[in-house]
Amino acid sequence: MTTPGGAILVWLETEGRGLGEASKRLALIASDLAKQGQLTVHGAIMAGAYGPPPLGAFAGLGLTGVLAFKGRHRPTVGERAAALLQAAKLLSPDILLVASDERGREMAPMVAARLETGLTADCVSLRLENGLMVQTRPAFGGDLIAEIITPIARPQMATVRVSGAQPVKANGEREPRPPWRGHGPGHEPGLADPTLPTLEVLLAPPVMGEPTVLKRTPLSADDDLEKASVVIACGLGLGGPEGVSKAKNLADKLGASLGATRAAVDRGWLPGHRQIGLSGRAVSPNLLITLGVSGSVQFMAGAGGAKDIIAVNADPRAPILALARVGLIIEMENLWPELEDRLGPL
């Protein structure tokens, strides 16, 4: 049972001299969850050789305390896990949350295995029910939604999909909401309690035998799909590379980022890193415009974080038309000339 006065521990990552977006959203999600059960939220973070971010970086996120572990610059996944494990042993939290990004999904199971506790991966929604954290996640390729609990082992661990995650309402909403209708955290930093957490700096626990990184090559994502406020997704209904090229020009003119369905990527119309979906990227823009996308469950798994969806599809039976706020049944061939009339050649 989650007893009042217990703790939620969240793992945070730095970005520059502050916190990464994913970490801030995770803290707010934890903060919403904490209100349901009178819990406090603590953060753990690796500080790098020069120390943690300034205290102000942790403001307004609902954190009571932060444990910063001074260690190597660019720690390995194993070193992160060791630090988080140390924090867990110090705080004995009821709940431990890690953002579901590439490294989070590697370090969390290491910590869970060491603590011999349960871990639910890639949750889209969290809430407290009868004192237990109910972890909602897609399974079977997204065809099924599973609600999972860790009845006995502690802490209850979850990796949380932050870009498309739904906030849990402070009024303790009981009904599971369809996860594909996420509205993002619904908070901006600064609106929550502005008090600053206490900060304790510790030495990161040493880990011997860790892998040695010999070379590191940064890869630029030549797009900021996850940060975009408007995303245009290209589907098979665009017909081919010409349609995609028009979509790209449309995106440029509207200041939007370009994404694609798996089907379009498989046909080589767009590069793989633009794929949105269960096996692609998750986006949470203010507006998602889909062009010729049918809206498979796999696609929606990556697109569900969008606050607003306008779907364009000539087929009235396309599933996405039911999921979008606005469904426009129209052929792309008939739409392009109009858009060009308004925006110029595409």
Binding site: G239, G240, E242, G243, E333, W336, P337
Partner: peptide, 9 residues
């Protein structure tokens, strides 16, 4: 209206 010359159709 006539279809534009680069129309996939």
């Amino acid at each position: 209206s006539p279809l534009p010359p680069d129309s996939p159709a």
